[in-house]
Structure formats: structure tokens, C-alpha cells
Amino acid sequence: MVDGLVHVALLILMPLPMLGLINRVKSIAAGRKGPPILQPVYDVVKLLQKGAVYSRTTTWLFVAGPIVALASSLLAALIVPLASTTSPFGFPADVFVFAYLLGVGRFFTMTAALDTGSAFEGMGASREAAYAALAEPALFLALMIVCIPAHSASFSDAFASIPAAGGLLRHPGLLLATLSLGVVLLAEASRIPVDDPNTHLELTMIHEVMVLDHGGPDFAFIQIGYALKFFVLGAVLVHLVLPIPASGWMAPVLFVAGQAGVAITVGIIESFMARLRLTRVPQFLIGACVVAAVGVLVLFTGGRP
């Protein structure tokens, strides 16, 4: 019960400030003071209070897009254990359901983008479709590396079975899974080097350009959904890197620290790295798939655990 409450509390409190933290890290690296860490929260609250403007071309799907995107991220975030090794909504084979829930959200975001009939948003949707399709195998392979030793395709069992001691070097396969999941996180959450969330040129955007025409509460839904998606993929990474205990006060502390670490790392990457040329992105993602595949091979070479 307490675990469930902690889960929900983290879910409500953490995702948006994490984005603020990334921006803060980037500002500091650029020698600026930067906006407050809670700025994304203020933005969302403001958006929720606004009216909306819809393009004359759009249909009901344009409205459905943000709703489905937020709903699917929300459910995905309920499936993954946060500050514990069990989750309130876990079930057998939830790993596969998790990935497909993210897929539903993406499907409807892309169709909502195409609903405007804008070439920019079509461009964004087609890039998102291409990169998501390439990131998918990497995500599944990385999750398999974690799940096979646990003999269960459920996040709760998988995280519980990761040995606590030894950090990232607990198993070489785990290291590769972490690497490849990191790439998936950057691609799925549209961060540098795959996409630049701060760009101001429509032609170079991916995620931002898909949601150009949304405004008001719809855009707030999109922002929350996006933050949740980043948060939940970050949570999976944190569980791979840090030994989060099954319960106790240490668990939330470690988890929050880990998520902050993820945000800071992403911020640092964004400060010191340029985004890849669009034709290079597929190779980056294929590389992630290959790394995860090597991880699976290593897992099986060392005598399957």
C-alpha cells in the first residue's frame, strides 16, 4: 500500500521537474543561470488554463492523439516499478505490454500530426516512425537481457533478480543492455543526438514538429505524456544501474538520486554534443541494436544464468 502511494507520488512529482533539471544543467554548462527547475510545471499549469485553437483541417483524431499518448504513457509508468522492485500494475509478460503501450501512444501522436495536413508535421511523423521502428528491436533485446536471467518477462521479477552488488559491472551483458537502453531513451524521448528539443527550425525537428498545432490543454497533455515517457524509460535505466532495494526508505532516495543522475547525464550530453545528421540517426540506432544483440550473445556464452 505504502509502496503504491510512493509510486503514484513519484509519478506525479518527478517527471516534469526532471525536464527542468535537464534545462538547468544545460544552462549551467552554457554559463547561464537558466530557468527554475519547476519551469515545466508552471508551463503545463498555464497551458491547462488556456483555451484552444484548432486547424480547420483537423478531425476528432487530432483531439484523440494527445489523450491516447498521455493515457499510454501513464499506464506504462504504472507497469514499471519505481522506488521498489514491484509495481502496482505489474503482471506476467508486462515487458511486452509496456513496449506496445508506448507504441499505441506513438501511433496516435503520428496520426494526429498527419491530421493537420501540414508538410512539417508529416515530416516529423515520418521521421518518428522510422526511428521508432529501429529503436524497437534494441529496446526488446535490452529488456530480454534483463528478463532471461529472471526467467520471467515481468519487470518486477527481472529487477528483483539483478544482483545488488557490483554496480554496473555486475554482468557484462547488463552493461551492454544499459548502453543500448540509454540510446533508446535518447531516441524515444527525442533528445540530442537524435533530436534537438530546443531547435527553432521546423525542418530539423522530429518530436516538436509533430505537435506544432496542438495548444492549450491538448498541448499540456502532450507535455505531461512526454515527460512521463522520459521518466519511465529513465526508471528502467536506473533499475539496471542502481541496486534499488525492494522496500525501505533507501529505495525512494536511491531512485530519486538515480533519476536525477539520468537527467544530469542527458543534460551533459546535450551540452557537449551536437545532434547527428538525420541520415546518421538510423546507424546510431542500428548500433544500439547490435550492442544489445552482442549483450544477448554474451549472456548465453557465459552459460545461461
Binding site: 541520415t279 538510423p282 546507424q283 542500428i286 548500433g287 547490435v290 544483440a293 552482442v294 550473445l297 548465453f300 556464452t301
Partner: peptide, 24 residues
């Protein structure tokens, strides 16, 4: 630079897989 190296990367990945298979 325009010429993509996916195939080269995938081929190397296949070679890595092959060597794991041979040694197993």
C-alpha cells in the same frame, strides 16, 4: 559521407555473431 554504412555495420555484427556461434 552520404554513403551509409549500415550494411558494413550489420555485416560486422553478423561476423561477431558467427564467431560466437563457432566458438560455442
Amino acid at each position: 559521407p552520404e554513403h551509409s554504412l549500415h550494411l558494413s555495420l550489420l555485416l560486422c555484427a553478423v561476423l561477431v555473431g558467427l564467431s560466437f556461434w563457432i566458438s560455442a
